[in-house]
Design a protein around this nucleic acid. Structure first.
Length: 309
DNA sequence: CGGATTTGACCCGCGC
DNA sequence: GCGCGGGTCAAATCCG
């Protein structure tokens, strides 16, 4: 099964997002907002700010196009995948296929946004545990790119985890962290997070089991609907089918960055201000690795749920 | 002060 | 049976 193309899509997204990052000035969204606030109060430099606005506008369009293209790619690949599944259903059923098919399945199951799938062939669980158990345990992997300087083994996937151990393993100099779902013991899901041997920037998260509850962020989002923000520039809903994990994009950060006190509210009446807010959100989303991770999780999760149908 | 994290000790399975 | 290595426990510590 060829899953490389969809992986490439993910890579494209990351690469593009990163290249976009390079193009943007080294300003945090918050500081941009301050600049924007100054624009409204101080009339000087209007021309420069308008230019900046136009630039951000163009960037926003780029992002929108990227996301649209990615969604299209995803749809195309999904249909391809469905085709392949229907053509070769026996591959899945055959236990003799072992690693080849297993690693392919892993790819489908993965939240992988990085796309180096070779590690699934060295999956220790695959080697040691009986297959039935693997199927029961629903082992999946996620690849999350982080800052090289970021030493915390934290993969933000919407769920709340409690770390219960850390160990340095033989095959990898970087420590492996062990997490349990904070809803344990009612939720038996565990995850292991370790930096990739090949690329220290990449965190490999191995999930065991399935959550029997919604992620805290989802519950928060649904209970507090007043916090919802309309994101016209992000044509991507990251919610999944009930069979899969529900990934919720946590947009509260973007919201909070725009929520600069009571004075900010009237500004929303201006189309410019709205446009700016949208751009802020898009920009902060692409800068946020959580977003790419959540997006990849949503996409791969959907693929998986489609596969299992 | 309570919950989360850290970290050394312990357990257990596997290979020799 | 023994040693090794991965996984888990739980007391100590940290932190909000």
């Amino acid at each position: 099964m060829d899953t490389s193309s969809w992986v490439d899509t993910s890579l494209d997204l990351n690469a593009s997002a990163r290249s976009l990052k390079l193009e943007t000035p080294k300003k945090e969204p918050n500081s941009n907002l301050i600049v924007f606030g100054r624009k409204l109060s101080v009339k000087e430099d209007t021309g420069a700010l308008v230019q900046e606005l136009n630039r951000l506008n163009a960037e926003n369009k780029k992002l929108t196009e990227m996301l649209t293209a990615m969604c299209e790619n995803y749809n195309a690949l999904q249909s391809q995948l469905r085709d392949l599944m229907s053509k070769n259903p026996e591959k899945e059923l055959s236990p003799s296929k072992k690693r080849k098919s297993e690693s392919s399945n892993n790819n489908v199951n993965n939240f992988g946004i990085i796309g180096n799938s070779e590690s699934s062939s060295t999956d220790e669980e695959s080697c040691k545990k009986p297959r039935e158990e693997i199927i029961k345990a629903k082992i999946s992997r996620a690849y999350v790119r982080t800052e090289a300087s970021d030493t915390s083994l934290v993969v933000k996937d919407g769920y709340q985890w409690r770390k219960y151990g850390q160990k340095v393993t033989r095959d990898n100099p970087s420590p492996r962290a062990y997490f349990k779902c904070s809803f344990a013991p009612s939720c038996p899901v565990k995850k292991k997070v370790q930096r990739s041997v090949d690329d220290q920037c990449v965190l490999v998260a191995t999930y065991e089991g399935e959550h029997n509850h919604l992620p805290p962020s989802h519950m928060e989002a649904t209970s507090g609907s007043s916090r919802c923000v309309t994101l016209s520039s992000v044509p991507c809903s990251a919610s999944l089918k009930s069979s899969g994990p529900t990934i919720t994009l946590d947009l509260t950060k973007s919201k909070s960055s725009t929520d600069e006190g009571p004075n900010s509210k009237p500004k929303l009446d201006s189309p410019e201000a709205r446009q700016y807010l949208v751009e802020q959100m898009a920009s902060s989303l692409t800068k946020d690795p959580n977003f790419t991770a959540a997006l990849a999780a949503a996409i791969s999760g959907r693929m998986f749920s489609t596969k299992s149908n």
